[in-house]
Design a protein around this nucleic acid. Structure first.
Lengths: 206, 206
DNA sequence: CGAGCTTTTGGACGTTTGACCAACATGGCG
DNA sequence: CGCCATGTTGGTCAAACGTCCAAAAGCTCG
């Protein structure tokens, strides 16, 4: 095979691993399946990665900041904060429906990391990233709709991730898109209720 | 070993498997680890189970209706629907904190089933059961608080499961109990907002 | 007791796994 | 050109895996 700088080989293997996990889940992501997907000899794997878990660490990191980039262009203008939130939820959900195994893979990676000592620090970082992406969206959305959040934005962001996680899991389990739509309706209502007009100086609205 | 009726041996193996999964996750649940936990010879496993996946099928079924039984005694009286919902959420969350690996194991089983053809029907059943448990709680809670749900109870139940799933995942990732508490506060507010006085005959309250 | 079944058991099978290594190829630099 | 660091490769290893089986043991009932 053509000579390749190790960094490039590493990222090609990570990409291949992600494709394998999409297709067959974490348990399908053996070193042999990965190098086959990347069309490399087996020996290449341990030349650039100390271990399989070390590769998964890189993979999770790569995926997390890929999701961050995707989130950036997710806010479409809506007539109000409710409509904005609702359509942002729908945009996320459409992504899940279009590629369910991708989101499934994210969960599998989370649980794998939770059970793996050498990766124990990753789940917290993963969720920190998710929430900070949600936070950006909330800020932009509120500004465009002319409202402000009546509770700490970090908590609202956490609530958003809570809802999308639960929404995704529920849909993965039963594939009922209509029911998911009703959940998003209720979620949008609840989130919109957490805003107040931007002009109000401070304090909690009752 | 003392002679055992196959049904009893099956359930002892399922119990042992559940302990192993709690401790080491799905990937730790090998036939050898399970029979070691149950203190049986390896041959016993395939005498009572056609395959490892067949055992996992029984295991998921067992776990699902065990959770159903637990849910039954989870409603404590509160002064109103908001307080009732909030304390039910707290009761669930306390359970998760007391035994995180149990809930983690439930998620792992879900994802395993989603990737395993012969178990593909289980996730939907698992969530049907969760939601029907939530539904019972909602009915009892609303009756005691003297309110009724302003949207179909099945949808509220699904929303509850959505919230608890997301809550659990988020806490598993970062173990921030205080933040989880704030999520439960917001969730209780949102759910309470979906009720109206029981005397009202019909229609949606604005 | 003894025939005929169910249950028990330890060992064996063929695969697959993550990891490792010695031998070989390549490319840049003196 | 020739050297040496860097990169490539196929084969090999021990361990762990799910599954299967034949032989032994126990139980029931005529």
């Amino acid at each position: 095979m053509t000579r390749l700088p190790p960094d490039r080989r590493r990222s090609e293997l990570v990409d291949a691993a992600l494709r394998v996990i999409d297709r067959n889940g974490i348990r399908g992501a053996t070193t042999r399946a990965i190098v086959a997907e990347a069309d490399m000899p087996l020996g290449s794997f341990h030349y650039v990665f100390r271990s399989r878990d070390a590769m998964l660490r890189d993979l999770i990191a790569a995926v997390v900041d890929q999701e961050r980039r995707v989130a950036s262009d997710a806010v479409r203008a809506g007539v109000g904060i409710r409509a904005t939130v609702r359509s942002a939820l729908q945009a996320y959900f459409d992504l899940v429906v279009a590629d369910p195994s991708r989101e499934q893979a994210m969960f599998e990676l989370l649980h794998y990391a939770l059970r793996t000592e050498s990766l124990a620090d990753l789940p917290a970082a993963q969720y920190r990233s998710y929430r900070s992406a949600a936070l950006e969206l909330l800020q932009v959305g509120a500004e465009r709709a002319g409202v402000r959040w009546a509770m700490p934005q970090e908590d609202v962001a956490r609530l958003v991730v809570t809802l999308t996680d639960g929404l995704t899991l529920g849909w993965l389990a039963d594939r009922d898109a209509a029911a998911a739509g009703r959940i998003m309706d209720a979620a949008a209502d609840a989130l919109a209720a957490l805003t107040e007009p931007a002009v109000a100086s401070a304090g909690r609205g009752a």
